[in-house]
Computed example of a mutant assay.
Amino acid sequence: MSQQAAFEGAGPIRAGHELPLDQLTDWLRRHAPNLGELQKVSQFNGGQSNPTYRLDTATGACVLRRKPTGVVLKGAHAVEREFKVISALRQADFPVPAPLALCEDEAVIGSPFYLMEMVEGRIFWTPTLPSLTPAQRSAHFETLNATIARLHALDVAAIGLDDYGRPGNFFARQIARWSRQYLEDDLAGRDPNMDRLVAWLPEHAPPDDGSVAVVHGDFRADNAVFAPDRAEVRAVLDWELSTLGHPMGDFTYHLMMYRLPPHMIGGFAGADLTALGIPTEADYLAAYCERVGRTPPTPQELRFYMAFNMFRLAAIFHGIKGRIARGTASSVHAQTMADNLAELAALAWAQTETTS
């Protein structure tokens, strides 16, 4: 099955993710009466962390994102933060779904949740965008590049997000956070390359240059809704990992697509970029740096960025493995992510030994 077929659309609610429809219907009547009566609920096939549902109502469709029930790691799955950031970004005219309502009362459906607009459009679950021509593909990659550059150019104070995270020492704090989550999740076990990276990364982080931006944390083609007929991003989705951070750290997470193998989410290493119309890694990085007015990273800095981001993604896979053990994994594809953990950790460690 292709990634597109596996992840797109919504289907029946999966076992363990059922919603108490009577309580939800009552809450909607009181807090979102303009939506009309709830008619149908289905669960989206994509997504790895926060269970996400399509609500069909008398006036159309909207999306519900909830924190998983059961035991979750401290600081994870903060849907309240997602609601805050998309509210601010919507006001700043950045492409995100319109926020509709937030419920922090766990008694309603068993965990906090929020509602947002259902943005219609096209999501490319396969990172090489195989249904497009080379010229169309080139335009879509150009748009992705411009969109993340636009995010990083926003004035965090002017849009009311200066308290959305702690400025400064971004890499040190992120390394500490993901190392802690990895080390504390006993149910997911340990990996030798992850252990090596926990020690290597703090010793090789570049000096803090004071750069602060709203960072998405998981910027990929499949977290963007494109217009169905042109290279326009209508909405950027999945803001669970967003915070204030270093823009180059966020962009190089996106840049990992060039180095991840095709069977890992978001990767196309080894693809014939020229034939596909996809810019080279160097050209894509240069285009971003020109847009935001940054000097491109040195080979040593890029080595760190790639190792850091692959470690971070591997820590996320490790967390998914732990959620499987706890019975709280939200995606039917969670086991595939967990199975890729060792390979990704090895690839992350390999970045520390490269010269470019």
Rank of each mutant, 00 (worst) to 15 (best):
P202S: 05
G322A: 03
R190W: 04
A172F: 03
A157D: 13
E281G: 09
K40M: 14
F317K: 03
T355D: 15
F308M: 07
R180L: 13
L313M: 14
A282I: 10
V156T: 13
A153H: 14
F219K: 05
S42N: 10
V156W: 04
L35T: 07
A15N: 08
G160R: 02
A271N: 07
P167Q: 06
G168E: 03
M264W: 09
D208Y: 05
E343P: 01
L151N: 04
G16F: 02
R294F: 15
K84A: 14
L38T: 01
G75S: 00
E106H: 09
E290K: 13
A32F: 12
T57M: 10
A275F: 05
E290D: 15
L313D: 05
T298Y: 02
G245N: 01
L151F: 07
A146V: 07
M257V: 13
P127W: 07
N145G: 12
W349R: 11
H17K: 11
K40H: 15
H333W: 14
P228E: 10
A329M: 06
R303D: 05
A235C: 05
A61K: 11
Y182T: 00
Q351K: 07
A269Q: 13
Q351F: 11
A61T: 12
P130D: 10
T52R: 09
D155V: 06
G165R: 01
Q48E: 14
A231R: 00
G249I: 08
D162P: 04
T25H: 09
H31W: 11
R122Y: 12
Q23A: 15
D222W: 02
T355Y: 14
R312S: 01
S356Q: 15
A315T: 01
G249W: 07
L273C: 05
G11T: 06
L144V: 12
A282N: 10
I123E: 09
R180I: 10
V71F: 12
A287V: 08
M248V: 15
G168I: 03
D155T: 02
E353T: 15
T147D: 02
E120W: 11
T328A: 07
